[in-house]
Amino acid sequence: MNLNATLIGELIAFVVFVWFCMKFVWPPLNGAIEARQKKIEDGLAASDKAEKDLELAREKAAEELKEAKTQASEIIEQAKKRATLIVDEETTRGQQEREKIIAQGHSEIESERNRVKEELRQQVATLAVVGAEKILEREIDQAAHSDIVEKLVAEL
């Protein structure tokens, strides 16, 4: 156990090793560790943010879905109302049309009947006159039979 020149040699070796370590070993290793720590930190922050965004998007989607549902039911409601309205309108119109047609028919029938009646009446009158003439040819008692003829005509 005695100090000698080995001390100097080891001291030089020590200095050189520390210098090398300081220049070429520590900075890249520590730098890599710190860069990775930064990366992980950023990654965690990003994942937190993404989670929050996802939550927000979910909420938004749910809200929109709800809105769409309300809108859809509103539209359906409106359509139903409209349909009822149209049906009612059409029904009313149909009814009116029918009534109109019926009324027209009725009036046509009525006028036809009147015409026929008139015609018939004229024919009957003619017939009656002819009949009367025939009867007159046999017995001319106009006074006695005119009331009968008149009665006949009035009955037609």
């Binding site: 090793f17 090398f20 070429f24 070993v25 890249p28 290793l29 730098g31 890599a32 860069a35 990366k39």
Partner: peptide
């Protein structure tokens, strides 16, 4: 120094 230097040269900030 050799061991640590070779690790330093290959060091990556990705998955080690």
């Amino acid at each position: 120094l050799w061991i640590f230097r070779s690790a330093a040269k290959k060091s990556t900030t990705g998955v080690p």
